[in-house]
Amino acid sequence: MNFGLQIDLIGWFALVTILISLHGLSRGSSNRLLGPRRAVVLLAITLVAVLAAVLWSAGDNNTLLAAIMILLGVATAPFSARRPRTLSLRAEQDSILNGLSLSTIGSGLAVALLGLTGWFETNYRLDNWDLRLIAVVSVFIGVWTFASGLMLWLRLNAYLPESTPTQMQQRVGFVVLAMALGLGLLAVLFPSFARFLMIVMVLLALELGALSAFGIAITQATRVLGRHLGLLGAAIAMLGYVQESLFLLAIGSLIMAGAIQYLYLRRTIKTRATDAPRN
């Protein structure tokens, strides 16, 4: 049964409403027809509609389990999006950053678990190399994102000591990244030894997450989150390829575009504006 097509059945309409919502949210309150609050409500309705379509088309296959897990996830969300004790703007911003790091932890875990499922549910010794590659990359991105989000959350709440980023930390980070990618590539090429290689790669990804969260000043926490959201977008696009869903491919690409815009392009525009000659 091809679930990708079933996601896409309603996915095309969902994609249109998502783009309309993004338009309303990025324009702010200047848009009278679709203000930011209505746009958020539209996004939530779209998510519920797509989920309902997937559950409805699944018939009796684990539908009840899926519904229970969704409800449990929704019920735990208020703990990760807690309001600050004071009404100040600074406390509100810190609280949103805290919640964002917890949301990144959840998404990272989900991506890692889906990559793991993709590896073991398919016959990884016989299936195509592209499916193996996507499974390994998903596990790597998920574990790295989970570790970075966790370390950032611990640092934001002062559970970890302050650290000053050094050049040595960055070099070690690059070496660990190169080792993890090399091991992942070996796991794809030689699936017979993949179990051991993937365990070492996961340990290196945990190490990399700790390094990437420690190797920055805490004021740059949003940049780390932006980078990992972009990676999550890439993972979602790859999952869309595996599940043959153009909807997930498009959503993943939109996330990557948002992350690229946040990390690189906005700064370029700002720099251009300040560099412009004054008449």
Partner: peptide
């Protein structure tokens, strides 16, 4: 938008 991964998970 990353929250839409719940669709892939389901």
């Amino acid at each position: 938008l990353a929250g839409f991964i719940v669709v892939a998970a389901v």
